[in-house]
Simulated scan of single mutants.
Amino acid sequence: MEILEELSKDRPRIRAALFDFDGTISTLRHGWESIMEPFMIEMITGGTPSDDELIREVREYIDASTGIQTIFQMQWLADAVKRYRRNPYAPEDPWQYKAEYNRRLMEPVKKRITTILSGGKSPEGYLIKDSMKFLKALDECGVDIYAASGTDDVDVVNEAHVLGVDGYFKEIAGAPEGRADCSKEAVLKRLINDYGLRGPEVVVIGDGKVEIALGREVGAVTIGVASNEEKRCGVNPTKRQRLITAGAHAIVGDFEKTCEILKWLGLEE
């Protein structure tokens, strides 16, 4: 555990935890970038040869947008298609791009889910190391646990169930069908405005800069999960730098040091 900013000694006790899902708990969608990048390039170029500048722009955008709703990424893609003017047959509607990207992404995701359901691999094989142990520990500490994701609501709810972690969450919020709303921002607003929690009573935990930045905006404690999704343990240096830039109070690669994290949060002696 890498502590970047010490927490105030007189802060209130943590009462709620908001988790990102993909890359923070689940690795079912590991490799989504390798699907989104060629998809975006294909839509922009219309199948004509791409160039280094275009590839670099797409990669930089994907890296910068990690954690936001997919529809916002597809809105960027629709704008890029218009800007480059290389694909006269490309649709204008970002929702059409989202539907096709999601179709391509779900092919490997469905295979992984089938592997779990058929008994070919245990759910733990697609969980960041000790994430279930950490969820259980938070629950035993009396912390209300929420999940919010840029993944479609119906899919993230199903994937949490397949992995056996859904029972730990008071709410699982994914991208709402047909609406370009940020689920992470919406859940945080409910915790603060509707449930009456103060910022320091909430810990936001995720591998994307979006949830870390949103957490800092409301005064929450933030833990960046710089996960290596392929190994499901250890620190990904690219994610680590992204999360530091976003303002995370602390960085972990996984949840192996559950006791250390809980002590830092003030939930254990």
Rank of each mutant, 00 (worst) to 15 (best):
K184F: 14
V204G: 10
A160C: 15
V202C: 10
A175E: 15
D207T: 03
E211F: 11
R198D: 12
V165I: 15
I192D: 01
L188Q: 01
I192C: 00
R190G: 11
L197F: 12
I205C: 09
A173S: 04
L197H: 07
V187C: 03
P176G: 05
Y168T: 01
E171T: 02
H161L: 11
E211D: 14
E159A: 02
A160S: 07
A160K: 00
L163N: 00
F169M: 02
C182V: 06
L191F: 13
E177V: 14
R198P: 02
L214W: 11
G206W: 12
D166M: 05
V162Q: 01
E185T: 13
D166L: 04
E201G: 05
R198M: 12
I205K: 03
V162L: 04
G206M: 12
E171F: 13
Y168S: 04
V162W: 05
I205W: 10
G208T: 02
R190N: 14
L188W: 09
D194K: 13
G215V: 09
P200W: 12
K170R: 15
A175P: 02
V210Y: 13
V156S: 00
P200Y: 11
E201W: 11
A160R: 00
I205N: 03
E171D: 08
R179W: 05
E185A: 15
L163A: 03
A175L: 14
A160F: 03
E159C: 03
V202D: 06
R179L: 15
G167Q: 02
V156H: 02
G199M: 07
K184T: 09
P176S: 04
G167C: 06
G196F: 09
A160V: 00
L188G: 05
R190L: 10
V202P: 08
S183A: 15
D194S: 14
D207G: 12
D194Q: 13
K209D: 09
K189N: 11
G167M: 04
I212P: 12
K184E: 07
L214R: 13
G178I: 04
A186Y: 04
K189I: 05
K189C: 07
E185Q: 14
L197W: 09
L214K: 14
R179K: 12
K184G: 06
Y195G: 00
G208S: 13
V157E: 05
H161G: 00
Y168L: 08
D181W: 13
L191M: 11
V156W: 04
Y168K: 00
V157A: 05
V202L: 08
K209L: 09
A175S: 15
G167V: 04
C182D: 14
G178L: 07
G164C: 06
D166V: 02
H161M: 09
N193W: 10
K189G: 01
C182L: 12
A173Y: 12
A173V: 09
G174W: 10
G208Q: 04
G178C: 08
I212Q: 07
K170I: 08
G196P: 05
G199N: 05
K209S: 12
Y168N: 01
Y195R: 14
R190Y: 08
I192R: 01
N158F: 04
G196Q: 03
V157I: 11
E171S: 08
